[in-house]
Amino acid sequence: MLRLPTFRYLQPRSLREALAMKADAGPDGMFVAGGTDLYPNMKRRHQEPRVVISLMGIEELRRLDGWNVGTCVTLSALSSLPTFQRSQSAVAGAAQLVSTPLLRNMGTLGGNLCLDTRCNYYNQSYEWRKSIDFCMKKDGAICWVAPSSPRCWAVSSSDVAPVMVAIGAEYRLVGPQGERLVPAGRFYHNDGINYLTKQPDEILVDVRLPAPNGWDAVYHKLRRRGSFDFPVLGVAAWIQWNGKKVGEARIVLGGVASYPQEVAAAGAALEGAPLSDEAIAAAADAAYQPSKPMDNTDFDLSWRKQMTRVYVKRALEELRARH
């Protein structure tokens, strides 16, 4: 049986208490919500906190208040929100595509947004990683995906994050220095190790979704199986309609970089015109160019790159079809 290491487990009831506990624990402390990302990682010794501070007992984080969603809302709850209208369904739809029904009953919105970057040189047991002298992301010096690279290429594997970036959600963080609002697009770094701009002692409290006002979004996920699997490519497409024309558009790729990668040129290719086949092809091509999947997930990387074009096209076609 693969077991957890020893640690102290704390269950604060308020944000203040949680922040104080984290301050006490220092770098040895980590926050946990659903545990579906952290505990497997702890079993494989990716993270080795001495103190684990659960956020699940904090009422504020479980709140659903209009378009503000607390980060400890489970993915199951998020995916079945009756208040979400069509434009928000991309959020619910992406949540519903995460892993399995069982995991979604435990995993939270915040957990998925802060999901540790993944790599099949990294998401392995300690013993396995020892065989290759570890990697840069944990215990080692080299990135096996790109051995001459100075950075880690672990992949952003969240399904919900690309949607949040695409629709322009804002994240509310609370830390020892107070509160701040961060646009989703600025919450992530393209670095497999430092992939969040969130400080370790900050808590992601809730997510503010833009009110529906003529925008629409979809999320398409590529993976081997219909459940369990992380995205090897995610495409979040957002359009602010202006009558029959595209006002603004954003295309965000998941699973191909260490962050949800917005391809500005793809969005730009759509703006100001109806969503024609030509415009869609231009956007798909624009998204294809910078999509640079690495050999660290399931599937062949060149195929994943080719699929960028197909998946962007299909996402946009879906948006067009239902407009």
Binding site: Y9, T36, S76, N105
Partner: peptide, 13 residues
């Protein structure tokens, strides 16, 4: 009443 993965739930929780 909710189906969960007992391998990822802490006993203390």
């Amino acid at each position: 009443g909710t189906a969960v993965l007992s391998c990822l739930v802490l006993g203390v929780a």
